[in-house]
Measured scan of single mutants.
Amino acid sequence: GRPPQPKSVEDLLDRINLKEHMPTFLFNGYEDLDTFKLLEEEDLDELNIRDPEHRAVLLTAVELLQEYDSN
């Protein structure tokens, strides 16, 4: 089946190999997954995450988090 739900933002970023963005998220108040899963493209602009590939991966991760919630 699906991988288990990540336990933290750090756990999530670790899985998608984008842990380099951890300080950015923490500094901007994305300390838990409840906050993280509200992330949208405009937020990525504000966080200055410009890499299109990173953005795509992050937004996909957000969608997956929302799916875990609805099940």
Score class of each variant (00 low, 15 high):
R2S: 08
R2Q: 08
P3H: 12
P3R: 09
P3V: 13
P4R: 10
P4M: 14
P4F: 15
P4S: 12
Q5T: 09
Q5E: 07
P6Y: 14
K7A: 12
K7C: 06
S8N: 09
S8H: 01
V9N: 03
V9Q: 03
V9S: 02
V9W: 00
E10N: 06
E10G: 08
E10V: 08
D11M: 00
L12I: 09
L12Y: 05
L12T: 02
L12M: 07
L12D: 03
L13A: 03
L13P: 04
L13T: 02
D14P: 02
D14Y: 06
D14W: 01
D14I: 09
D14V: 10
R15W: 08
R15V: 08
I16Q: 05
I16K: 04
I16R: 03
N17T: 02
N17I: 02
N17C: 07
L18Y: 02
L18P: 00
K19F: 05
K19R: 12
K19H: 10
E20T: 07
E20H: 07
H21F: 11
M22D: 04
M22G: 09
M22H: 09
P23K: 13
P23H: 10
P23V: 08
F25S: 04
F25I: 04
F27C: 15
F27G: 14
N28T: 02
N28L: 02
G29I: 01
Y30G: 00
Y30D: 04
Y30I: 13
E31G: 15
D32T: 14
D32L: 03
D32V: 03
D34M: 07
D34Y: 05
T35W: 00
T35S: 14
T35V: 07
T35Y: 06
F36I: 06
K37Y: 00
L38P: 02
L38G: 12
L39H: 02
E41T: 08
E42K: 15
D43S: 09
L44R: 01
L44V: 03
D45S: 06
D45G: 02
D45W: 07
D45T: 08
D45P: 02
D45M: 10
L47A: 04
L47V: 03
L47R: 01
L47G: 04
N48A: 09
N48F: 00
I49V: 08
R50S: 12
R50P: 06
R50A: 09
R50K: 13
R50H: 14
D51C: 08
D51Y: 03
P52F: 00
P52I: 06
P52L: 05
P52H: 07
E53A: 12
E53N: 11
H54F: 00
H54Y: 02
R55H: 05
R55I: 04
A56K: 15
V57H: 11
V57L: 15
L58T: 04
L58Q: 07
A61D: 03
A61F: 03
A61L: 00
A61W: 09
A61N: 07
A61H: 07
V62L: 05
E63V: 02
E63H: 12
L64F: 11
Q66P: 05
Q66I: 06
Q66K: 15
Q66N: 14
Y68D: 14
D69G: 11
D69C: 07
D69R: 06
S70L: 00
S70P: 12
N71F: 11
N71V: 13
N71E: 14
